[in-house]
Amino acid sequence: MSEISVVIIKRFIAGAVCPSCNAQDSIKMWTQDSTPHRECVSCGYTDTFNEQGNPVPTEPDTRLSPPPKPIDPNVQTLRFVELRPKT
C-alpha cells in the first residue's frame, strides 16, 4: 500500500501582533481541514478561526476568567469622521 503524506505549509504574517504576549512578527498561520490556525513562536499561544474569520476562544468567559487588560492611558483612539458633500 502507498501512504499519502500531507504537507502543511505554515507562513509568518508580517506585522501581526500576538494577542497574548504582544510580540510583533511572531505569528505563523496555516490551514488544516479547512480551518485556519495561528500560533505565536515567542510564547506558544495558539487559536483557531471560525467561518467569519473571528478567533474562537479556548474557553468561555466566566466570572472566574482573568479580568481584561487595562487600557493604556497613553494610547489615543482613532476616530473616523464622516465627511458630508457640499450642497
Rank of each mutant, 00 (worst) to 15 (best):
S26V: 11
Y45E: 07
S65M: 07
T31V: 08
S5G: 09
R63C: 12
D61F: 15
R63A: 14
F49D: 02
M29E: 08
P36L: 12
L64Q: 09
I27V: 06
T48L: 10
G44T: 05
R84M: 13
W30F: 03
L78Q: 12
P60E: 15
T58K: 15
G15F: 00
Q24S: 08
M29V: 01
Q32H: 07
L64Y: 10
E51L: 00
K86D: 12
F12H: 02
P36Y: 10
M1K: 13
P70C: 01
P85W: 14
D47F: 04
K10P: 05
P36N: 04
V56N: 10
I4M: 12
C40K: 00
V6R: 13
S20K: 09
P66V: 08
C21F: 01
G53W: 00
Q24G: 12
Q76G: 09
S5R: 12
D25H: 04
H37G: 00
D72N: 13
H37E: 05
V17S: 01
E59N: 15
S20F: 09
V75P: 05
T87G: 15
I71L: 05
P57E: 13
N22W: 06
E3S: 06
C18F: 02
R11T: 07
L83N: 10
D72Q: 01
W30Y: 06
E3N: 08
F49M: 11
R79T: 14
K10S: 08
L78M: 13
P68M: 11
N74C: 03
Y45D: 11
F49G: 00
Q76R: 12
G15I: 02
T46N: 13
Q76C: 10
D33W: 03
Q24A: 07
P85L: 12
D47V: 02
G15T: 03
D61G: 14
P55K: 05
K10T: 04
